[in-house]
Structures are given as structure tokens and as C-alpha cells.
Design a protein around this nucleic acid. Structure first.
Lengths: 334, 334
DNA sequence: TTTTATTTTGGGAACGTTTACAAATCATGG
DNA sequence: CCATGATTTGTAAACGTTCCCAAAATAAAA
């Protein structure tokens, strides 16, 4: 039904090779022939079938971004960075979401096995070290914003230990001594690392760690609310709370406001990621900003280098974060 | 480098046809042969190359969701609905984002021209009627959550006129007479329709339309803030504001709070879409909920029907919305 | 055993491209 | 006008599958 390159060749009175040449301008073609081909293309409404091309060239120029969830906007900036780097190199980014489900993640990864895409970037993953290393051997993959202990795979992220340290240190520097943390139950290393950063500050500042000052839920914002209820039920509630994600920070802030606590005065809250909502919320949420766009650019640039060179660099790249100070944290020093 | 079906055939001591048969279990194969093939597959770590398969079958079983922006979470539920319906039918959903840019939208649509995907669902579009009709002639496309006047293309959405009417009527029923609206400058019909719904309520309730009660910006939440500043500068400010999107409603609420207005008391705000943030915000934002999951399911089911039947139904399907009442609107009647 | 029906198999064309190679055309200079 | 070199063209194989068709193997019936 659809016109093929043969139809174009016939209509233009040239061979398919010539049509292919003008399509990819891969070799010089006389202006006469070029014109004939182009008008045949227009006349027939021809559009090359990439299934043929891809099969022949053994590449699709598509990179798949595997996203755990579209429930929040954190990945938006990363995707933009990925797109920019990809487009500059003739690649496109397609996304799919796994809802943090291992089976779904595997289903998506099939697309790299079966060559539907040239590579995949995992923005978070449920896979274990062995599986990742196996995949990395045979295919082109990268991990973004997460790390897997011992997995020697191209990784681009911020230093979560350091990021959490900076956030919690900020709370301490503002004069807070009773600092709690809301984390997740998951085993994702980004969570573990952020807890480590929290602990490190306590140690460095000579603050004794209290077990009841740590609450674990999931990334869902309702856990922020639950955590706030819990902390306020303590006989000696914290004055500041470091949240593993802005989403949770917002949940905590919401509950605090419902409890008629003045966020940024009666209770201080600090998040992580600098989601758009943190700027929108009232009061604005103090947080750690990740260089999303840059993370996206970098991971694609490195990945393309791997693809083109045919060998794996497996770099572990850490980019710089920054503290964004808003109204949700009280500074006792002024 | 990678094993092909030929390698498997050789290793299993059968023909490629037989391997293909066990791969797709498209015909009965003796258990002996099946076992040989399966062990050869495992041994070689074989994974079928879909470029070959897709070329041969002239289908990819992939549907592309073209998303204007990942800045907000509105599309999340729709995508989930799309995935559910697609997976049930052996299809996968891949996404790409256009950042509301016509060139980017065209770039993504190329994937349906060149057969990289079987169909595309446009969640909003910059294209005009003619282009859409042309595309719809040759390819399988659908529009979601938006409509284009006169474009006879499969469309699934809510009735925006009716939705806005319900929202504004609710404000009026709560005793508000001075009702303003924050809309967009764009020509998207969803905006135009929602303005129409607003006007209809005024007419039905015998409220005189005031030009200064309408403010136009874009979907960015900062315009909500700007609008709030503007309305409060009027000599006779509104008591209620209907916002074309929750994002804008949040921006407006944020600014109101900064101006020390008690949202839900001094000023009432109503949004549209029921984004997660509307529940998270303090106070919760009253809004119109779209049946996102259902919209997603429906558009894929209809699209697959078009694909499989080979003919276009071009239905215009309207699904039911609902009013979600929260604290951001004051009810004068109680 | 032979015939017939059934199940299981393999050969090879086809899908729409790209590209190596060879052939044809053209221009140039002697 | 011929030889040479440069440019432009066409032929055909290849990419990895699926699937039609016919052949082979097996089972059932006579």
C-alpha cells in the first residue's frame, strides 16, 4: 500500500541505489537525477521505512529512558538534557515507565535485547548487580541518579552521601540540634547513602543519634504526613526534619500546617531534589538541587561514546549539587 | 557478534523455520525439537532481532504517546491507562515529549511515518486541522485531552465546556457573584472551551461579564501568581477565581497566601485536572477531575480497533468528569 | 503390507533498506 | 580522436526474520 524505494526508483527512472543515495546524500548524485528523485518522492508521498534501514544498518538511533514513575516531575529536567545531547548526535530519546516494578522493567529492557532500541538509560532500577553486569556485557546501558553496589556500569548521579550531609549540616548550622529524618524502607542505595550523610553530620557535630528520630516509609507524599504525626507524638519532638525527597517534605509540611504548626518557625523541613513543587509550596521548601539537565546530557554523551567506540568505559560520574534555601527552615542565628 | 536464528538452528540441528515456530509457537513442533531449540537458545544467549521480525511482519507493536510536557504530572494516569490496554493486546507504549514545540512534534511523528511505531497518540497538539486529517488518512493516530476544530480524527477527552461550567456553577452555588477566570493566551480549544463554560454560567446566573475579570497567561504556575496580583489590584476584586488548570490555581493560591489572604476564606480558588499537587497543597484545591486512566484505556482500545480493522472510526468520545470539593472554596451558604 | 491421512519438517522467497563492486558515462588533455 | 581519470550510475548481496509451499516422517486405516 505504501510506496517503497523501488516505486520511487521506477517513477524517477533511476535505480534504488541512486534513490538511497539522495535519501542519505551518501554520495554525489547528478543534479538532474536528484531532482527527479525528489519530485518522485513528493509525488508518491514516500517516507522511507526505517525497519528496512535499521535492519540493514543494525541500529535504530533510539535510546530508551526507563523511568520508574511519572508520578512526579523529577525526571523532566533529566529527560530534557538527554534529548538535547541525543538530538545533537542524530539520536532520539523515547521513554517508558516501569512503576518501579521489576517485571515491567524487564519487559522494557527487552527492547534493547531485541534491538528495538540501541541502548537504555535506567533512571533508578530494581535489578541486582549480577543482572546489570550481564546486561552491560552484551548491551549498552547506563544508570542515572541511582547506583548499585559493585555494579561496574556507566553511572551518572550526584553524591548522595555528600548531598544529604550538606542538607543536614545546613540544619545544624541554623542552630538545630534535634534533627529527624524521613527515609524509605527500600534498599535503594540512594536512600542508604542519604541516611549515611545524615549520620555523618550527627557524628561530626557531636549530636547523639536517636533511633526514634528516623522514620521510614516510601517515596509517596502521604508518608511525609504520617511521619509528621509520628514525630509530633514524641515526648521530645525534633525541631527540624530532613526528608529524603521533596515529595515527602511536602507531605510533612502539609500535615504540619494541618496541625497548625508554622512551617519554618515551629518546625523546619528540608527536602531533596528541588522539584518544582518545592518552589510552589507555601512556604517554599529548602532543598538540595540536583543538576538534572547536566546529568541527562552527561549520561547520553558518555553512552554514545560507548556505543560509537564499541567498548564500555563504565565510568562512575558524580556531578555537583547545590543547596537551595527557602522559607521552610528556621535559622536560629539571626 | 550476536547469535541469530541461523546460529540457533545450526546448534539445535534443525531449520530456521522450526526455530521460528518454537519462538512464536505458531505451529506444532515435536517436543524433541522444541527442547533442542530451547537449549540452543539458552546456550547461545539468543534473543530474536525484532528489526528483522518487524520488517517482515510490517508491524512493531509499539504505540507512541506524544506528550507536550513532562513538567507536570497530569499525563501520568493517562499513560497508565494506555499501558494497561496496550499490554493486554501485546503492545507497548513508548513516550516522547515535544515541549509544546511544533518542530519537535513533527520530529516525533516521523516515527510513525517511517514505521518505527505502529501508531501515535497526541496528548495535545500544535498541528492544524489539515495536517491532522492528512496524517489520519495514511497513518494511525489519535488525539487525547484536546480537540481540533473540524479535524475528523479519533479523539478521547472530557467535555471542557461542561467541565468548566460545572466548576464555575459550583462557585456560584456557593454564593459567589464576583467570579474571575485565569485562562491562557493560546488558541488550544481546551482553553477556549473552558472559557465558554465560564461565560455560560455567568449568562445562566444573570451575572454580568466583566472584561477585567479574565486574565490570560500560559499554563505555567507563575501566571497564577501574576493573575492574583492583578486581580487584587482591581478596585472591586473578585471573591472567587476559576483557573484553567490546577497548576495555575496553585500559583494563584501561593501568591494569595503571600499577600496574607486566607485561601478558602478571603479568596476562593478552583482549578481543573485534579493534579496530585491539588490534594497536597494547603489548603487543598477544589477542582474538576478528569478520568485519566479511563481516557488512556479508551484511546488505546479504539486505536487498536482501527489498526486491526484497517479502517478509521474517527470517533469523538467524551468521558465523564467530576467535581472534587476541597478547602480552597468558601461556601457562603453555611 | 500398502494406502491414506496426519503431523512435523525444511527450502527459499519476501519484507525495504544500504552498500560494495563493477560498469557506464563524462570531461580533460595530449 | 584516443587514452586517461573522475564522476555518476546500476546490479546484487546482505541484514534477520516469517511464512508459504512442498517434502519428509509418522500414524492410522485397509
Amino acid at each position: 500500500m505504501n510506496a517503497t524505494i523501488k516505486d520511487v526508483a521506477k517513477a524517477a527512472g533511476v535505480s534504488v541505489a541512486t534513490v538511497s543515495r539522495v535519501l542519505n546524500n551518501s554520495a554525489t548524485v547528478s543534479t538532474a537525477a536528484t531532482e527527479q528523485v525528489n519530485s518522485a518522492i513528493k509525488e508518491l508521498g514516500y517516507s522511507p521505512n526505517f525497519l528496512g534501514r535499521n535492519l540493514r544498518k543494525c541500529e535504530t538511533n533510539i535510546i530508551l529512558a526507563v523511568i520508574p514513575s511519572t508520578e512526579h516531575t523529577f525526571y523532566s529536567g533529566i529527560i530534557k538534557g538527554m534529548q538535547a545531547a541525543a538530538n545533537e548526535n542524530g539520536y532520539d530519546i523515547l521513554m517508558s515507565t516501569t512503576n518501579s516494578n521489576l517485571a515491567a522493567e524487564m519487559r522494557m529492557l527487552k527492547m534493547v535485547f531485541n534491538r528495538t532500541v540501541d541502548a537504555a538509560v535506567l533512571l533508578g532500577t530494581q535489578l541486582d548487580k549480577e543482572t546489570l553486569m550481564d546486561l552491560n556485557d552484551k548491551y549498552n546501558i547506563a544508570i542515572c541518579c541511582e547506583r548499585v553496589e559493585g555494579a561496574d556500569v556507566l553511572t551518572v548521579k550526584v553524591d548522595d552521601v555528600d548531598g544529604a550531609y550538606t542538607a543536614v549540616k545546613h540544619l545544624a548550622d541554623c542552630g538545630h540540634k534535634k534533627i529527624a529524618m524521613i527515609s524509605t524502607q527500600g534498599t535503594a542505595l540512594s536512600s542508604v547513602d542519604r541516611e549515611k550523610g545524615y549520620m555523618n553530620v550527627l557524628k561530626d557535630m557531636g549530636i547523639k543519634f536517636k533511633d526514634e528520630y528516623i522514620y521510614r516509609g516510601s517515596y509517596d507524599y502521604t508518608y511525609g504526613s504520617l511521619a509528621m504525626d509520628y514525630f509530633m507524638s514524641l515526648s521530645d519532638p525534633p525541631t527540624a526534619i530532613f526528608c529524603i525527597s521533596d515529595m515527602i517534605a511536602v507531605g510533612a509540611a502539609k500535615r504540619a500546617l494541618e496541625l497548625e504548626l508554622n512551617v519554618g518557625e515551629d518546625i523546619s523541613i528540608c527536602g531533596f531534589d528541588n522539584l518544582p513543587i518545592s518552589a510552589m509550596y507555601t512556604p517554599g521548601i529548602t532543598t538540595i538541587e540536583q543538576p538534572c539537565y547536566e546529568i541527562g546530557r552527561t549520561v547520553i554523551e558518555e553512552l554514545l561514546q560507548n556505543i560509537q567506540s564499541g567498548e564500555k568505559s563504565n565510568k562512575q560520574i558524580m556531578l555537583n549539587f547545590s543547596l537551595v534555601s527557602r522559607k521552610s527552615v528556621k535559622n536560629f542565628n539571626k
